[in-house]
Design a protein around this nucleic acid. Structure first.
Length: 180
DNA sequence: GATAAGATGTTA
DNA sequence: AACATCTTATCA
């Protein structure tokens, strides 16, 4: 078991989004650990109209400009949270949205960004967590290696801007991908 | 099956 | 007013 360090995240967001497929997301909660395999991601970058940081730094999006390897958690539609991992060097905005997990360890279906956050008890309290340390309450470990041929690139889901950019990635034939 | 609408609150 | 969502209802 190895944990990707800051240099893993301090790269192009699209590359990180692909490389995160097959890694595990782990959440320490009340003395137990909830975990799942990342099977679907989306990339968000500074020059991307759909990115929260597109119009510059705001109180919410400031996290996206910080150190790669931090978590970025926000509330969407008033009732669900979404988790991202910050990418690119400091002061350059970028993040990878984790859209779906294949459940391990006592998780129910987590085939969507809102559902997986509810299952893993991820809330705004877990914003700006260092996911490169197993001391954190939220972190990422290497798990499976995914061959490039197993990665499918498609358009992102649930956004109104830049809907034709193929910045969504998932593991081919996996049963836990979020639906349209 | 498909499509529509409602819940809900933060953001800028 | 929009929103990186999900569930439930109402068709067929």
């Amino acid at each position: 078991m190895t944990i990707p360090d800051h240099s893993f995240y301090e790269r192009d967001t699209l590359q990180v989004a692909k490389d995160l497929l097959g890694c595990k997301l782990l959440r320490r909660y009340k003395d137990s650990v909830l975990e799942g395999v990342i099977v679907e991601t989306e990339a968000y970058k500074a020059n991307d109209p759909a990115c929260h940081a597109y119009k510059g730094k705001t109180p919410r999006s400031a996290t996206l400009f910080k150190n790669p390897g931090l978590s970025y958690v926000y509330l969407i539609y008033g009732m669900y949270h979404c988790v991202n991992i910050v990418t690119e060097p400091e002061e350059i905005a970028g993040a990878v949205l984790i859209r779906a997990l294949e459940p391990l360890e006592s998780l129910d279906n987590t085939n969507g960004p809102g559902k997986l956050c509810r299952e893993l008890k991820i809330t705004k309290e877990l914003n700006e967590i260092d996911v490169t340390s197993s001391e954190s309450n939220l972190w990422i470990e290497k798990y499976q290696s995914i061959k490039p041929a197993q990665i499918v690139e498609t358009a992102r889901i649930g956004i109104k801007q830049a809907t034709d950019w193929p910045w969504r990635f998932y593991i081919k034939d996996n049963k836990f991908i979020s639906k349209k």
